[in-house]
Design a binder for these strands. Structure first.
Lengths: 138, 138
DNA sequence: TTGCGTGCAAAGGTTTTGCATGGCA
DNA sequence: TGCCATGCAAAACCTTTGCACGCAA
């Protein structure tokens, strides 16, 4: 039994969500969100950022990623109007650049692994490592 | 170029590696490794465990994984004597099982990413996270 | 008015760093 | 002997918790 807890709409929560929507192309750490909001003159305590993110992840509008490098979690807004869009990450091991890859081919990949290998890939946790174009040409 | 640093062979390093080999079916945190070694009467300082793991990951005999909880990193020995560089690894985030996946489809994936996204995937460093069949049925 | 939300300070847990000492080669 | 390795203590980080006060409904 869920104990549906009431949720108030507050300035801080809206701002955390808006920040993620504004940056939906990237993923942000809790710290970065706090920093961005501060820059915009809309300071929100870090504790509150964490608690707001917790709620947002719970209700599915935001995804939590575990990024390998830092020990900090990253968050990204998920537009659920688009259908379950796959989003893999490529990370260059040379320069550290993170590439956000949205590509239909990758949905096929997920389907293939699911059907042929009985394994459900979780792309929120998966990062493909390699070398980006710029670094390959060095 | 690289400044090849000499590496000494020490009791502690051997024991950390052996511990991982003994448990190659599982993944272990730095803390668990320290604990196991202590139980075996071969105490190794936690700092040293971390530093040994760092080296082992660097030279590719051990892989660093992110675990479900996300708090601490997990490590697992990878047997490179087999041609592991030819295939991808799937890791179940529930049970920790490591699956070696050999499949032509995945070479295509590599080709696709290389051609369409100008990125060379290094599958010795890449792990696809997800849930295996057994765990999905729980 | 009720009770969730906020944010400071402090706690908790993991990993890294400084430094003097130890040990491989 | 020259350096790297070790391990204690402490620092550095990220995240969570306790608590008094603020604020949405």
């Amino acid at each position: 039994m869920e104990k549906e807890q009431k949720t108030y709409k507050t300035r801080q929560r809206s701002q955390v969500l808006n920040c993620l929507i504004d940056n939906k192309a990237k993923h942000l750490t809790a710290d970065e969100i706090a920093f961005i909001l501060k820059e915009q003159g809309a300071e929100v305590g870090k504790t509150t950022v964490y608690r707001a993110l917790e709620k947002l992840v719970e209700d599915g509008s935001v995804r939590k990623y575990l990024c390998e490098e830092g020990k900090s979690a990253c968050f990204q807004y998920v537009d659920n109007s688009e259908e379950c869009h796959l989003h893999f990450h490529l990370k260059c091991v040379k320069c550290g650049k993170l590439i956000h890859l949205e590509c239909d081919y990758l949905s096929d990949l997920e389907k293939h692994i699911s059907e042929h290998h009985k394994f459900t890939v979780d792309n929120t946790k998966t990062v493909l490592y390699g070398v980006c174009e710029a670094c390959a040409n060095v």
